[in-house]
Design a protein around this nucleic acid. Sequence first.
DNA 1: TGATGATATAGATGTTCATCAATATGTTTA
DNA 2: TAAACATATTGATGAACATCTATATCATCA
Lengths: 103, 103
Amino acid sequence: MKLATEDFDRISKALADPQRCAILQKLAMTGKLNCSDVGAFFDVSQPTVSHHLKELATAHVVEKEKQGQFCFYHVNNEVLSAYVSELQRRLGLNAILAAPRAR
Amino acid sequence: MKLATEDFDRISKALADPQRCAILQKLAMTGKLNCSDVGAFFDVSQPTVSHHLKELATAHVVEKEKQGQFCFYHVNNEVLSAYVSELQRRLGLNAILAAPRAR
DNA sequence: TGATGATATAGATGTTCATCAATATGTTTA
DNA sequence: TAAACATATTGATGAACATCTATATCATCA
């Protein structure tokens, strides 16, 4: 999966806030949480949690799933993997993998 | 190599600005550049380049090497690799690698 | 030593953004 | 339908930050 520059930049920014990164990490660990669950783990207001989840969703690193009055969020592993790959590519960390195969 | 939380956060922020990320990418591609070289690639003022390079150096993703009146910068691959590894760990992207070996 | 060139610092400015209180919207249940 | 609950939105505020101009520092060279 290939990320557009715009998407890459947005994900970088989404990860740059420690609070938001912690929320994403919690989602990665637990698999799926609703807003209240997330809020229970961190000492921030409900609107702030909602804001961070929205940013993460806008960057497509999490997906939103509405179930009745609840709203579940889970990580999008495909996008996260694509982000890490692109980051490695840009930073030249995949030189060995990208090198032409010896024969 | 293990990154402290503080270092991880700082690197995330260093990568969050597209201009700074582009500078880092250029350094990764070319190996080693001085300030003027970097400035020649991007349409920003000399103090801005100096500022970005300082941020990257503070985050330890690049290293500074003074040679006379010039100042060369090159990426620190060890730190960058450690960052990507820690990111993967936090995002749960290394589940397969981390799994206990089958026997 | 004085001029030129490379880089860093200081200070200012406008923008982005994390956060909150208040409120709105939508959903469930008594 | 009214109350209670979950989430989203609005608007405000203060902090962080990217960028610039001006200037300082330091090294080289004529």
